[in-house]
Computed example of a mutant assay.
Amino acid sequence: MHHAASGHGPLPAAGALAALPVRTVALWLLIWALPLVMVLVALGPDHVLWQIGLFFSRIAVVTFGGACAVLADMTQEAVGGFGWLSPGEMADGLFLAETTPGPLIMATQFAGFIAAGSHPGSLSSHAAGLLGAGLTTWVTFAPCFLWIFACAPWMERLERAERLQGALAAITAAIGGLIANLALWFALHVLFRSVSVAGLPVLSSLDWRATVIAAGAALLLFPLKCGIMPTLALSAAAGLAFSAF
């Protein structure tokens, strides 16, 4: 009993573990798919809500590394691919998620709201936006619970899998590149009003106010070692002051 509790006893057979999550997977697949089926039946495959459900289901499944990695994929597709949001709206969603309680991943909810509200089809804009936000949240989090409950019996075995640990290390390195790419994308679209199709900034469109605030924030954070909250407060105050002119 002591060995089993401490995690150093023999691992259960893989065959015994494989039978455990079948019902869990089936249940969570049903929970995940139910709102998508309702949208498909009620509005059809051409409605933006169906596209939103499929898109955010996909990024919830195939994106590793937390919210920043999800946002990198979402930004490229929602802005550049589908055209649901403008770069400015995407930046607003990120900043709103960063400055309000709750996880950063809730920026997806903002994107779903704007995407559906801007393309409501037969629905009202407000109703479509609310449905888009709710559907986005549902299909973003349902797969997470599926993986958690389905993989829980396997966690001890997975922790000892050396090949898996090596794969996760490689994924972690790739995620660092994704986050750097996302930071560069937001920096370009915040500091410059216009960015070319090739992704290069139009130098004449430089926003001097955003540049001054960004430089001031960098100065406060790094050389002066100022805290996050004072830096945010001072940056917000500077933004309000600049907007008055």
Rank of each mutant, 00 (worst) to 15 (best):
C226L: 08
L203Q: 12
A14S: 05
A5W: 14
L85A: 09
L20E: 15
D92Q: 09
A187T: 10
S205W: 06
A244K: 00
S6H: 08
L30S: 13
A173P: 04
L221F: 03
A183N: 03
A174R: 15
L85R: 10
V41L: 15
T75S: 13
A72N: 12
V79N: 04
D73G: 03
H47Q: 14
F149Y: 15
C226P: 08
V41C: 15
W50N: 02
A116N: 01
V61P: 11
T100K: 12
L164I: 03
L224K: 14
W185T: 01
A169T: 15
A72V: 14
A217K: 00
F56D: 07
A238Y: 09
F113I: 06
L224F: 11
W154M: 05
R23K: 11
L168R: 11
V190A: 04
L168N: 11
W84L: 10
K225V: 01
R160I: 10
T231A: 05
G65T: 05
I148M: 07
A60C: 03
A217Y: 01
F145N: 12
L221P: 03
R157F: 04
G9L: 13
A26K: 14
L54A: 08
L135Q: 12
A170D: 15
V212E: 07
L191D: 02
F55V: 02
A13E: 14
L94H: 07
S124P: 05
I175F: 00
L158Y: 01
L191H: 01
L20F: 08
L184D: 14
V139H: 06
S125D: 02
D92L: 14
V41A: 14
V25C: 11
T75R: 07
A187P: 12
P223S: 01
G177K: 07
D207H: 12
F192Y: 14
E98Y: 00
M38K: 07
V62H: 11
L30K: 11
F110I: 15
H126T: 14
A5C: 10
L146K: 12
M155K: 13
P103V: 12
L43K: 15
P201W: 03
F141L: 13
T63V: 11
G88E: 02
L168G: 04
P10F: 13
A42G: 15
G121C: 06
M106V: 05
G199I: 00
A127W: 11
F110S: 15
P101N: 05
G129W: 09
L184S: 06
V190K: 12
L164W: 09
V197Y: 00
L94S: 01
A150C: 07
V25Q: 10
V79C: 00
A67H: 03
M155D: 07
